[in-house]
Amino acid sequence: MTATVDIRNLVKRFGAVAAVKDVSFTLPPGETVALVGHNGAGKTTLMKLMLGLIHPSEGTVQVLGENPAAGDFAARRHLGYLPESISFNTGLTGRETIAFYARLKRQPIALALALIERVGLGHAVDRRVGTYSKGMRQRLGLAQALLGRPRVLLLDEPTTGLDPALRQSFYDIVEELRADGATILLSSHALTELEERAGRVIIMNRGVKVADGTLDELRRIAQLPTRIRLRVAEQLPDALENWLAPIANWRRINGHGVEIDAAPADKIAILRHATGPEAPVDDLEVVPPTLDELYAHFLRSQEQA
């Protein structure tokens, strides 16, 4: 399958500062990828390089088979971009703003207005953008990014200021685009949100790519413990402590439960023990390492290296 984005040995310097350092990856169609990292990790710089807003110091960028740094970047009409900091002409109405972007992308005004309705701004479409709240401006930014059903969608902190209902609606739209073959690159500090949405995660730190893979792949690499939570019917009896004696790294929680940190090699044996016929357990929950924990692990590993 041909990649929609192909980045090879990419370096971007701003004076003496290297914002991106020898980064390589490809993004295929029909995939949602999370790009995570602290402020200054290089995430926004990567997106701007893909858009052709800035040019590489070294290495190459190909987007939809074209070089974004070229003077005639025809593929730009097939890109959607939502920047972290949105700025619109505050004197224009929502209708005038989305119509302006629709003309830039050569899209019908009617389809642009339908997007305004879908992001929940229909009631304010004829108000000046200067009267919009931060969340409303974010909705308008989402609508312009989604114009023309882009083949590559670059989203930098896309759900900032959105209420839970609109956040769900936004991800529904994103999933439709992905299922239709679009490439979605999501950058956000809301790692729990990304964990539920992204099929793959790229972790950046100080301009360096420190990890790249699915959550399962990253968990296998990191080898972090899985939390196993057990619930018992009554206050923990002494007999339960005897039953738990063969298990290391367990602790009582809330008086009616036990939490175990299970190393990957021990997880199955502990689960068998916990679900055996003599186990004083009413219920259990298995919690694999979260994206927050994986992110912290890979950053620590890089710092220690």
Rank of each mutant, 00 (worst) to 15 (best):
R252W: 08
N89K: 09
E157G: 04
A279L: 08
V36P: 12
A143E: 00
G122Y: 14
D282A: 10
A296P: 07
H38T: 15
T4N: 00
A245Y: 05
I7N: 12
V129L: 00
N249F: 08
Y81A: 06
I184R: 04
G130T: 02
A110P: 13
T44E: 03
G130R: 05
D156F: 14
R206H: 15
R220Q: 07
L27I: 13
V286A: 01
I270N: 04
S133M: 05
T90M: 06
N67P: 12
Q107D: 09
K267E: 15
E278S: 12
L35P: 00
D126I: 10
L147E: 08
A245S: 04
D292Q: 09
A279V: 13
G30F: 00
R151T: 05
P280T: 02
R13C: 15
S169A: 15
H273D: 06
F14M: 11
H273Y: 12
V258P: 05
P225A: 12
G91W: 04
E96Y: 11
Q304T: 12
K48M: 09
K12P: 10
L64A: 11
W243M: 05
V287Q: 11
L166G: 14
T60P: 03
I203S: 07
G207S: 13
A179G: 14
R178T: 13
K209D: 00
L194E: 02
A305P: 00
G91Y: 01
H189N: 01
F298W: 11
V281F: 12
V23W: 02
M204Y: 14
R103M: 02
D6V: 04
D283G: 15
L244V: 05
F73K: 03
L240A: 02
E195R: 12
A305S: 14
A69N: 13
A262H: 01
G135E: 13
I7R: 10
R8P: 14
A99K: 11
A248F: 12
L177T: 02
A102I: 10
R95C: 15
V20F: 08
K267I: 12
L51E: 09
T93I: 15
L111Q: 06
P289T: 07
F170D: 08
A18S: 12
A16Q: 06
V119A: 11
A182M: 11
L194M: 06
V33A: 07
I184F: 03
R13M: 15
G135V: 04
E285L: 05
T32N: 04
A18F: 02
A198Y: 05
G120F: 02
G161A: 09
T2Y: 13
L215D: 03
Y101T: 10
S187E: 05
Q304W: 01
Q302Y: 14
R95F: 09
T44P: 00
G161I: 13
Q304D: 00
Y295R: 05
N249D: 09
M136K: 04
